[in-house]
Design a protein around this nucleic acid. Sequence first.
DNA 1: TATAGACTTGTACCGGGTCCAGCTTTCTGT
DNA 2: ACAGAAAGCTGGACCCGGTACAAGTCTATA
Lengths: 210, 210
Amino acid sequence: MTRPGKSSLSEHCPLAAVMGLRERKKLEAWRTIRSTALALISERGFDAVSVEDIAGASGVSRTTFFSYFPSKEAVVFDLDPLEVQQWRDLLADPRADLPLWEALTDVSLGLARLLAERLPLQKRLFEQSPELCTSSRDTCDAFEPDLKEWISRRTPDGDPLRTALVYNTAFAAFSTAIEAWDPDDSFEHFLALVRDCLRWAGAGLAHPVS
Amino acid sequence: MTRPGKSSLSEHCPLAAVMGLRERKKLEAWRTIRSTALALISERGFDAVSVEDIAGASGVSRTTFFSYFPSKEAVVFDLDPLEVQQWRDLLADPRADLPLWEALTDVSLGLARLLAERLPLQKRLFEQSPELCTSSRDTCDAFEPDLKEWISRRTPDGDPLRTALVYNTAFAAFSTAIEAWDPDDSFEHFLALVRDCLRWAGAGLAHPVS
DNA sequence: TATAGACTTGTACCGGGTCCAGCTTTCTGT
DNA sequence: ACAGAAAGCTGGACCCGGTACAAGTCTATA
């Protein structure tokens, strides 16, 4: 588009200028594998695509695939390196003024936006093979350490029990929203669901109706 | 202990008299495999014991192992057939008078008691290999259909979103209690944890302190 | 006691995941 | 610009969990 020999990557990633060739190639490979994988999987279904298929179609060896993704599931659920950065920014946002549960709702909505793009595909895959739901929870657990630390800092005395309870409950609410969302509905609908679930869970489910 | 030829099973299981030879042998095999597996695993650790090891030590073939347990993890987490019966009894208990969340707490406490015996071992295994936590959640999902239906019946209009939210949140509270429990503490301590977690989650976590 | 049906077994196979030794590519210091 | 260090890629061997299947063995039933 500009100079010849310039990787297509730089269009999507202004950081490319700063990265060495090594890093740039790595990111490019990551994205190639991911998009190839998603194409194959969304076409044939998760179980009908083997890691070899993905590796082959990506022009890479099986071994290399596993050097980029720790498991077959990860290629569906892992965040793009840039999105990981956005996730960290979300947690770093110094909105110390908000009460815990509101701040947590904000973070959840931010996370929802990060997941937005691949969510419809993921929901379709869930319907095909429910075992994947488990794996997705696994992958979401990648956020656990960061998020728990974030919660802990906002919890009186950093009480670990309370921290864990808040984390797990928020996670439950978030998962419920994902479960309940119909990919045919708008994305705003999904955000509303996330908000509602967190509000209800935060307000307490013991009351007959909220 | 009494008449010769009488299976040791009948001491534990008065139903044995009613069961045919087939069923009795099956239950006996199930228990042999389970206890052999737990012995090996608690000694060497989960990953260091293969299904072949278990099958071999149980005097049974690998194929047969998988006809009793759907996965290697299941041999650690599945409920004894008799316990499954107790679980169903728990759900059938017609305490329609209690409000949903209290009734749910009762059910959770009942479940806790069913899990009691193997919980210390399971917690030790969790520490060794955190991947197992996931599998345990999997296995607990075996309760999901029953429990969701149970909740749905007690939810206004059987609203599926609310049902899912209640289920997931209760599950989160229960898991938190399991996470937080130290196997060196008494079992009553664990029950108290379950109660507390459910109470807090039910009362709403958005409040600064409960 | 014979037969239908359940249970077991060995074997072969698939696919995910790890390990390793050797090769190619990029980076760094001079 | 070049040499050596370091990082990355590759194929192949291997382990293990899980499934399929055909053949055998045992229990139930009439």
